[in-house]
Design a binder for these strands. Structure first.
Ligand code: SF4
Ligand code: SF4
Lengths: 137, 137
DNA sequence: ATTAATTACTACTTTAAGGTAGTATTAATC
DNA sequence: GATTAATACTACCTTAAAGTAGTAATTAAT
């Protein structure tokens, strides 16, 4: 019951960038150092974020990354979707096929409420909402 | 954000056994067939449940498995604990170290409520509560 | 006693996530 | 133009979960 490492890293990377909205570009070396994420793995993830159009990159000397849109327009769920970590409507906590609404599984009734709250949290939290909140980054 | 296959299987296995409380012993072949779980993997998991004292086994011909206690005395969380899948108090949705209550991470405030509901669901749901509920097993 | 049916044990294979290494490409600075 | 510092690409390695295979141990029925 936890997000994948990749998703966790991506959220933290983007949240940090949102927090540093003054600096036009942020480079991978700084991110890896501050967030304690393996440099090579970070750049791999970042390239996916660029392809998914959440981030724009500038190559070459003095290059780096920046958010492609306003922090308030990037939701946590947008990030999870890239890595197939978003909670789907029919997702069963016991993983027995899909939910058809008629044929429930054993934990269905208790699962609905936290599932909705998680979906809400991911869909409604934007980078702006979480940037700079708390001391853990 | 899903339980491991192993935990999902274990919950379904035990829930099925709880539902079949008439039959004194249930064997692995039947379980694997009904629950559509690979036989060899199922017996591997079951052996762990035996070692954890949730299940007692009878070897030899006419042998099988049965719950070691009343279905109402086995909570879903007891099962998750065996496979280290239970949600810990300090578990961070962003996986940044442990929570000290003072130094929050970015999603802390939104994570508290669904986390509590999940813990509640796992701790308060017993096998009796979920056995035979719904048609998905 | 032998056989058949069952769980337990040991060891291996497969798969996917996580992580690493090396090189190519790009662009500002000198 | 050469150098340097950055991202992008390709390919590989590592680790843990998931799954498989074969054999040993146990017990009831015959
Ligand atoms: S029964 Fe409930 S938990 Fe199972 S798939 Fe349907 S919605 Fe999900
Ligand atoms: S800050 Fe919140 S989410 Fe992060 S570790 Fe502490 S309790 Fe968990």
């Amino acid at each position: 019951m936890q997000l994948s490492n990749t998703s966790q890293y991506a959220i933290r990377m983007l949240a940090y960038m949102a927090d540093k909205k003054d600096s036009p570009l942020i480079n991978a070396t700084e991110l890896a150092k501050v967030l304690q994420i393996p440099y090579k793995f970070l750049t791999k993830i970042m390239t996916e974020l660029v392809k998914a159009d959440l981030v724009v990159s500038m190559r070459g000397r003095e290059g780096g990354y920046s958010l492609s849109k306003k922090a308030s327009d990037i939701k946590v769920d947008d990030i999870l979707n890239i890595f197939h970590d978003s909670i789907q409507e029919e997702q069963c906590v016991l993983g027995i096929g899909f939910c058809n609404g008629m044929c429930k599984c054993a934990l269905h009734d208790q699962w609905m409420e936290p599932k909705l709250l998680l979906q809400k949290m991911f869909r409604e939290s934007s980078l702006e909402d979480i940037a700079g909140k708390g001391c853990k980054i």
